[in-house]
Design a protein around this nucleic acid. Structure first.
Length: 337
DNA sequence: AAAGGTGTCAACCGCTATAAA
DNA sequence: CTTTATAGCGGTTGACACCTT
């Protein structure tokens, strides 16, 4: 991994306009591009003294020639003490895979479940590593379903002709159909026994595609008014400090808690290793079984009228189509309840 | 060794949601 | 109700490092 500090210094020397600075809407007098150590110091010092927030006025007060948005991003993604940098461990990778399958490209939500990691980092990691990894294993990174047989080949051809493959592949996979045949794909060197939700690693250290894995859980998360959309009945807004929100009122706290439990349950292999769990719970709605995360799952699915019709892959599928509809933000999803 | 291709990641953009005035 | 400010999100870009030929 490159030394993050090297780039800003080089860029500062070159007075670079910075990455992604393609727009001609550059605001006069505002610096853009990579941050210098001096700017980092100014921002850190100011925020430690005055706290976060008021990003619009912050640059001026802190003596920075940056827009507030840029300051916020720099703080959130790089300077915050809680930001963990460095290689993403295999267990984190597992978690990202699971969460992505559940949530799609909800990077902030995913990041909120992985302490110290930022949405930007996870997004980058997904685009540069995981999507390619899944493709190489014959899995559509958007739907987490098996790719069509020729996908890989045609993809490789594209790879040869496009240096931006990791963008185009992630955003526009061509697979619209697939054969739900035994798509047992090999996993890399990791020795994890932790099954991804619905994806179970077998004794050969391979994971089985959710479509073929036993114990497929169906939870109806579709809303009649938004067929195909994912509708979570909880506060989906992420917090980079995990999932705490000090401003939450009781209701929000409750829903956030439920959502956390719900996600935990989905992530937790128990929920998927017990395919009859939902059914059992529904048959015994007054059951006083032990209060576990699975209970939270059940209660949340009941509370938010999730019927037995949702399967995790379809969530990934539908959510991935969501990003063609940017209006369906987390907040919007939340509001649907 | 040089040139061109590819991968990575920080930073940008446009957009939406929410709260406050 | 409208406007404005703020916060936050996902997608995209481009500089730089590394790899391959």
């Amino acid at each position: 991994m490159r030394n993050p500090s090297s780039k800003p210094q080089a860029a500062a020397a070159a007075n670079s306009t910075g990455a992604g600075a393609s727009s001609n809407k550059t605001k006069v007098g505002l610096k853009r591009g990579p941050w210098t150590p001096e700017e980092d110091e100014l921002l850190s010092t100011y925020i430690k003294r005055e706290g976060e927030g008021r990003w619009r006025t912050l640059p001026k007060k802190a003596g920075l020639l940056r827009c507030g948005k840029s300051c916020r991003l720099r703080w959130m993604n790089y300077l915050r003490p809680s930001v963990k940098r460095g290689h993403i461990a295999w267990d984190e990778e597992d978690l990202i895979l699971r969460l992505h399958r559940l949530l799609g490209n909800r990077w902030s939500l995913i990041a909120g479940r992985i302490p110290g990691r930022t949405d930007n980092e996870i997004k980058n990691y997904w685009n540069t590593h995981l999507s390619k990894k899944l493709i190489s294993q014959g899995i559509d990174p958007r739907t987490h379903k098996p790719l069509e047989p020729n996908y890989s080949d045609s993809n490789n051809e594209n790879k040869a002709s496009s240096s931006k493959l990791h963008h185009t592949v992630a955003d526009h996979p061509s697979s619209s159909s697939y054969e739900p045949s035994a798509a047992v794909v090999s996993r890399d060197a990791s020795t994890s026994n932790i099954p991804i939700d619905g994806i179970e690693f077998n004794s050969d250290d391979q994971y089985q595609n959710p479509e073929t894995a036993a114990g497929k859980v169906h939870v109806n998360m579709q809303n009649a008014d938004h067929e195909g959309d994912v509708t979570y009945g909880m506060d989906l807004r992420s917090s980079h400090e995990g999932f705490s929100n000090e401003d939450d009122d009781d209701t929000n706290y409750c829903t956030d808690d439920i959502f956390s439990s719900f996600l935990n349950s989905l992530i937790n292999e128990d929920a998927f290793n017990s395919p009859n769990l939902l059914q059992q719970q529904q048959l015994q709605p007054n059951s006083t079984s032990t209060a576990t995360d699975c209970d939270a799952l059940i209660s949340s699915t009941t509370a938010f009228t999730f019927g037995p019709g949702w399967d995790a892959p379809s969530v990934a599928s539908t959510t991935s189509s969501d990003h063609n509809d940017p209006k369906l933000t987390n907040e919007k999803v939340e509001k649907q309840f």
